[in-house]
Design a protein around this nucleic acid. Sequence first.
DNA 1: ACACTATCCTGCAGGC
DNA 2: TGCCTGCAGGATAGTG
Length: 289
Amino acid sequence: MPELPEVETVRRGLAPALVGARILRAEQRRPDLRFPFPDNFAARLAGRRILGLRRRAKYLLADLDGGETLVMHLGMSGSFRVDGDIQGAFHHPRDKSAAHDHVVLHMENGGRVTYNDPRRFGFMLLVQSNGLDAHKLFQGLGVEPLDEALDASFLAHAFRGRAAPAKALLLDQRVIAGLGNIYVCEALHRCGISPLRAGGKLVTAAGRPGALLARLPQAIKEVLADALAAGGSSLRDHRQADGSLGYFQHSFRVYDREGAACPTPGCKGTVARAVQSGRSTFYCPQCQK
DNA sequence: ACACTATCCTGCAGGC
DNA sequence: TGCCTGCAGGATAGTG
């Protein structure tokens, strides 16, 4: 479920159960997800206290005592579940999703945090906390989209001379870290930029942001803020850590709305679907230029 | 350097 | 009903 608003919503949901709490015991139920788990993963988690839970881009970072940080990425289908069931697990045998419960953290406070990931594109790593920024995963990461560093001149610099479509550039985590397919589609629609438009064409010859590009940072920040306020988007049956559903999917203007009337006031267009870099793009050919 | 593809994996919806 | 195809919120290695 993982773009920035979803990961941040997960972080907020997990924090009460994890921050300040000690991991009594950890279960690692398979050798790997996207990558192999670290050596002695479960044993290295046992007894550790979680000092804080942060987010960087789409990564969740749990800082542990002892100087290590547990780095978690949800991939496409990762989710966390928190239950306070101290008496023992209730796992319905027909609950298929339990087959994909890959990691369980048994907390000293009686809580239990389970990581479930059917597609296993997610991963967990342990990294020295003081070397996090230098780690390969974080080294090349672009700006946080909600940071003030994301502004029109930053985008003009990043897009200048690029032939790749705006969609591809916004999905590139080395430029902006945290956007994904949904929010890129939504942000481009909000500011009237076609996802097919070459990035370089949105920049003036002098390297300044064009009129449309100037609106993009605000569009990105607004759609993310709206999604955060809604608890993220819940496609299919994805749930937040506390079991509740985000509801921003009801506010999508173009994503997964092929054939619907364009919601832009005064626009008579119809939402279209295109495929870019193997992924669906939704946009209005009428008002996105 | 850049642009584009194929790929990892499972589940689900839609067509026949 | 069942089988098949395509598609899914991500990110990377590999190709030209």
